[in-house]
């Protein structure tokens, strides 16, 4: 009995300690003076993290927009309200689906790769040797990846939303025969740039911070063995997905819930 309490206490302390460690890690790597070299490194990571994830995010966005239109139409048509299809597709995409699904895809595609890459650099002593050369790996390796993640995910989310709205139009207007004017018109009447697009982007910025942070920290703090790398990669995807979904609830409650 007492053993269990002791274990619980120790677990609590260790969790807190890790959290603190991760926080210090984030602060140390983010706040550095950017240099020309830093910009070049950041560009390379943008390519790796952003451009390489573009295809999967856009294709998913297209399909989700199309499915939304299809499902929405079958429900709305019962009420004779299929004119509201555009508004339904746009609002569910911009407020909810684009930030969340893009973040989940990003965690799976880019987050796990970041963890594995940094983990491998740690396992092959590249991080240590960098330190011995007199270069701070937090600045050189971690910071460009963090910043690339922060910028890339909101951009990917925008892409997701645009393609999704277009996919909804494809199914709703071209296929199911919703009047094009009411698709766009109802959408424009109900979507507010600041409240919907802005809040959606704010969400994705928060998700970008959390997902990239988890991915990079898991890579930096892992046990440098092949088993450690595979475990950390799994942890990145699991923790990041849970964090995104949990935070999404909190953010939605603050942004849209209860406030008219």
């Amino acid at each position: 009995m007492i053993d269990h309490i002791v274990r619980l206490g120790r677990w609590g302390c260790e969790t807190l300690e890790r959290l603190g460690d991760a926080g210090i890690f984030l602060a140390q790597s983010m706040f550095g003076v950017p240099s020309a070299e830093g910009v070049r490194l950041w560009l390379r990571q943008m390519h790796f993290v952003g451009v390489m994830s573009l295809a999967i995010v856009l294709v998913s966005g297209l399909f989700i927009g199309m499915v939304l239109a299809l499902q929405g139409y079958t429900i709305l048509v019962d009420f004779g309200a299929e004119d509201a299809l555009g508004q339904m597709v746009a609002l569910s995409l911009l407020r909810e689906l684009a930030p969340v699904v893009a973040a989940l895809l990003f965690a799976g595609r880019a987050g796990s790769a970041l963890t594995a890459e940094i983990g491998l650099m740690k396992a092959t002593e590249q991080l240590t040797s960098m330190e011995m050369i007199g270069v701070d790996p937090l600045r050189r390796v971690v910071a460009p990846r963090l910043w690339a993640g922060f910028v890339a995910l909101p951009l990917l989310t925008i892409g997701f939303g645009v393609v999704g709205v277009w996919g909804g139009q494809l199914v709703g207007v071209q296929w199911l025969g919703v009047f094009e004017g009411s698709y766009w018109g109802n959408m424009q009447a109900s979507v507010d740039f600041v409240a919907d697009v802005g809040n959606g982007l704010l969400k994705s910025l928060v998700f970008a911070l959390v997902v990239t942070w988890i991915a990079v920290y898991q890579g930096y703090a892992l046990v440098p063995t092949s088993e450690g790398i595979s475990r950390a990669t799994t942890r990145t995807v699991v923790y990041a997905s849970l964090a995104v979904l949990g935070l999404d609830f909190v953010l939605t409650a603050v942004m849209f819930g209860g406030l008219s």
Binding site: L120, M121, T124, E125, Q126, T128, S129, M130, E131, M132, I133, G134, V135, D136
Partner: peptide, 18 residues
Amino acid sequence: FRLRRRMGMLFQSGALFS
């Protein structure tokens, strides 16, 4: 870090930047 510039270290695995 300044002191480390005066040192070199050869790692077991080489630790070249991949």
